[in-house]
Simulated assay, not measured.
Amino acid sequence: MKEFIINKNDSGQRVDKFLTKAVPKLPKSLMYKYLRLKRIKLNGKRCEISTRLNENDVMQLYINDEFFENDNTEQVFLSAPADIDIVYEDENILLANKRVGLVVHEDESGTADTLINRITHYLYLKDEYDPDKESSFAPALCNRIDRNTSGIVIAAKNAESLRILNQKIKDRELHKKYLCVTVSVPEKKQAELKAYMIKDESTKMVAVFDKPNDRTKTMITKYRVLKENTELGLALVEVDLITGRTHQIRAHMAHINCPLLGDGKYGSNRINRQLGVKTQALCAYSLRFDFTTDAGILGYLNGKEFTVDNVWFKDKLF
């Protein structure tokens, strides 16, 4: 018999959601069967998959030990460095400035050196996360950016913060701005662009059109030129995404003949080589919390804005 005492991070979840994370080796079909047979009990009584857990509840599982064999997957984060560039941190959240070349989660390369593993290792060393004391929660990212884009990524340190931030992002109550360098200066110093895109899954590239069709998705991009380098024909541009499409900034700026410097997909490799830039000059440099509804334990963040000061291309070219 295995017993779980529900802690604060576990509370509020449905029984089935908790079990899926706490006992990942237990097939869902067996989970439903064992719930029916009362081999999984909550506080000594039968429970339903939709029952919500409360802190200090006791869940008892009368099932085979094989489902609890520890494969140490939760320890993978220890093989990643604990080195992160922190923009802001408190007891609930951490804002990290992700460097170019670092992936946010594990990808097809299989590397353990990811941003989330670095953050988890960092919190582990601070005694703010112990996998042995958690049944279903681990520090989690609330947003992601591409490997070759730098900038702010939000990590939640507890389940309640994760739930709130995911909802606030869905409701568009968090606002990000980007800095980029364009090859050639946009004709208008500021504008709101509207176009239509299709992603080609085979090439992983986006095609942009001025008119819609039955396959396109609308994308809207606001920008303003902050500085110009007339000698090199470059512009430092601040971008505000109204929609969030794949490669939106890169593809949309290229569509108006102002591709991003260093962009190998949508830009000019000749100019990139001339200027010795090997990665796209794009940074998610600003994050503002604009809550319009109750934010619970994160209400203190409302109205606060955080920025990355050391944007690698800003001082180098402007």
Results as ranks from 00 to 15, higher is better:
Ala284His: 00
Tyr178Pro: 02
Asp132Phe: 12
Gly303Asn: 06
Gly267His: 03
Glu160Phe: 00
Cys180His: 03
Asn117Ala: 07
Leu282Thr: 00
Phe289Leu: 08
Ala112Pro: 09
Ser268Asn: 12
Glu91Tyr: 10
Tyr122Glu: 07
Ile84Arg: 03
Lys314Met: 09
Leu94Gly: 01
Arg270Asn: 12
Lys38Cys: 12
Asn310Gln: 11
Lys157Ser: 02
Arg273Asp: 14
Val208Cys: 03
Asp263Met: 02
Thr230Ser: 11
Phe67Val: 06
Asp214Leu: 12
Phe313His: 03
Thr203Asp: 07
Arg215Tyr: 12
Val277Leu: 01
Pro186Ala: 01
Lys265Glu: 06
Leu61Trp: 04
Leu275Asp: 00
Asn229Lys: 03
Lys217His: 11
His252Asn: 05
Tyr34Leu: 11
Ile49Arg: 14
Thr221Pro: 05
Met59Tyr: 06
Leu53Tyr: 06
Leu287Trp: 01
Asp107Asn: 13
Asp10Tyr: 02
Lys265Gly: 07
Asn158Asp: 13
Ala138Pro: 00
Glu192Val: 15
Met219Phe: 08
Leu42Pro: 04
Ala155Val: 09
Val183Ile: 14
Ser50Pro: 08
Val23Pro: 03
Met197Gln: 10
Leu19His: 02
Leu317Arg: 03
Pro186Glu: 04
Tyr62Cys: 10
Tyr124Ile: 07
Glu66Ser: 12
Tyr223Met: 03
Ser161Thr: 05
Pro81Glu: 14
Thr243Glu: 04
Asn72Pro: 02
Ile86Lys: 08
Arg39Glu: 06
Gly296Asn: 05
Ser29Gly: 11
Arg14Val: 05
Leu298Gln: 00
Phe18His: 08
Ile49Ser: 12
Ile154His: 02
Thr203Ile: 09
Asn92Cys: 07
Pro27Gln: 09
Ala195Cys: 11
Asp214Trp: 14
Thr243Met: 06
Leu141Tyr: 04
Ile198Met: 08
Val206Ser: 01
Leu102Asn: 08
Asn148Phe: 15
Glu228Cys: 05
Leu35Ile: 15
Val15Ser: 05
Tyr178His: 04
Leu241His: 05
Ser202Val: 13
Lys227Thr: 06
Trp312Thr: 09
Gln190Trp: 10
Ala140Trp: 06
Leu282Cys: 04
Asp127Glu: 13
Ser29Leu: 11
Ala281Thr: 06
Leu234Val: 00
Thr279Phe: 12
Asn56Arg: 13
Glu48Pro: 09
Gln13Trp: 01
Leu26Glu: 06
Arg245Gly: 03
Ile145Ser: 01
Gly244Met: 07
Gln167Asn: 14
Ile86Tyr: 05
Thr279Leu: 09
Met197Arg: 07
Val225Gly: 00
Cys180Glu: 05
Tyr34Gly: 08
Glu192Tyr: 12
Leu123Val: 01
Leu162Arg: 03
Leu298Ala: 02
Ala159Tyr: 09
Thr292Pro: 10
Glu231Cys: 03
Ala22Cys: 10
Ala112Met: 12
Glu48Ile: 13
